[in-house]
């Protein structure tokens, strides 16, 4: 199978039913995308598929064969993405484990809605769980990234 991750083609023998999450983590070694629940409940595994937020733990790899997958490793090559910058400015992460997924969801939100209201931020981000309780700062950081974008 051929998959395109962060602009790079990977040619690999793969079980087409394997979720994208495990292809990224265990086959390709792109471990910044996290396993949190395996059933699309927590959002830790969020990646962009053709610009849309997808839960990679429930997305079979055959579904992304002709699509562009972006993970947090592909978000900033030379420069920090404004969302990542806002995450640092607002000092959002605590343990950080859910934050790859939070950032990917926030990028997807701002791609489709560059000036979200607080209600829209909360609604879009409600699929991403954080156990450390960084939600208030996630809201602040998304507001800030929206202003600076």
């Amino acid at each position: 199978m051929k998959v395109n991750i962060n602009g790079q083609d990977y040619e690999q023998e793969l079980d087409p039913d394997m979720p994208v999450l495990w292809v990224l983590r265990d086959v390709l070694g792109l471990t910044a995308t996290k396993y949190g629940c395996g059933i699309g409940q927590c959002g830790a595994c969020t990646v962009l598929v053709d610009g849309q937020a997808m839960r990679s733990c429930t997305t079979k790899v055959r579904f992304v064969e002709d699509k562009q997958v972006q993970t947090i490793e592909g978000v900033s090559r030379e420069f920090l993405h404004p969302v990542q910058k806002a995450w640092i400015d607002e000092q959002v992460p605590q343990c950080g484990y859910c934050q790859s997924g939070q950032i990917m969801s926030a990028i997807a939100l701002l791609n489709e809605n560059p000036e979200p209201t607080d209600g829209e931020i909360k609604s879009f981000m409600s699929g991403n769980i954080c156990r450390c309780g960084t939600y208030p700062r996630i809201i602040k950081a998304i507001r800030k990234a929206a202003q600076n974008d």
């Binding site: 471990t31 910044a32 993970t71 947090i72 920090l80 640092i88 000092q91 959002v92 992460p93 950080g96």
Partner: peptide, 26 residues
Amino acid sequence: SNKIIPDIVLGKHPYALDIRLPEMKY
């Protein structure tokens, strides 16, 4: 600022779950 935050937002914070070693199985 918290030193580990840049690592986290770049996806480079070294959690044990992300370790990959030669000959490692799951």
